[in-house]
């Protein structure tokens, strides 16, 4: 009886050791994944701004930003090639944006827009991508929320072209 008992003990011990190794390596894996996610979120997430929110730090940092607001009426200028220049406004401040490419089908003056890109050294916002998703009644949700919040802060109540979410 003695011999199988010890071999069984040995077997159980090895099993336990293997289980500990598996748990530890699993934990290490999870730590690495969580670290990766956090690092990437810190480094790669882009902030959302409307022109009133832009800080001096934003202009220097060259971080990826999403600039939201309305395309100012009469501000869209075509330059050489496919270069386009326009102003994004939240009716308090405005920001010059440059974009090289084809504007989306729904891009229009006076309509809501989100420009994704970075600030150049001269303080102009260089957009890599311009998003416009709306009909006459729709303004991107982020933009509408933000402008509403800014309205509340500054207690001004002149908001032409009111941000209205689509009816049901």
């Amino acid at each position: 009886m003695q011999a199988p008992q010890t071999s069984l003990n040995l077997y159980l011990k090895r099993r336990r050791r293997r289980r500990i190794i598996i748990i530890i390596s699993g934990l290490c894996f999870m730590v690495v994944i969580v670290a990766l996610i956090f690092y990437a979120l810190q480094d790669k997430a882009g902030f959302f701004r409307i022109p009133s929110d832009i800080t001096a730090a934003d202009k220097i940092s060259h971080r990826l930003l999403r600039l939201g607001g309305y395309v100012e009426n009469g501000s869209v200028k075509r330059e050489t090639g496919a270069n386009i220049r326009f102003y994004v406004t939240d009716f308090h401040h405005k920001q010059e944006v440059r974009f090289n490419g084809i504007l989306p089908d729904l891009f229009r003056e006076g309509q809501g827009v989100i420009a994704e890109g970075r600030f150049a050294d001269n303080g102009v916002f260089i957009a890599d991508r311009v998003l416009a998703k709306h009909d006459e009644k729709y303004v991107p949700k982020d933009v509408a929320d933000r402008i509403k919040a800014a309205e509340g802060r500054e207690t001004k109540n002149s908001l032409p072209g009111r941000a209205v979410l689509p009816d049901k």
Binding site: I33, L36, I37, A40, L41, D43, K44, A45, G46, F47, F48, L64, R66, E116, D142, D145, R146
Partner: peptide, 27 residues
Amino acid sequence: ATVLAGTLYPLLVESLTGEKISVGAPF
């Protein structure tokens, strides 16, 4: 899990701090 984190992180940050962020292709 990373896709889930990247998708829900903006919601979480917005409800905690009010800051709007976007997590896109680079992440």
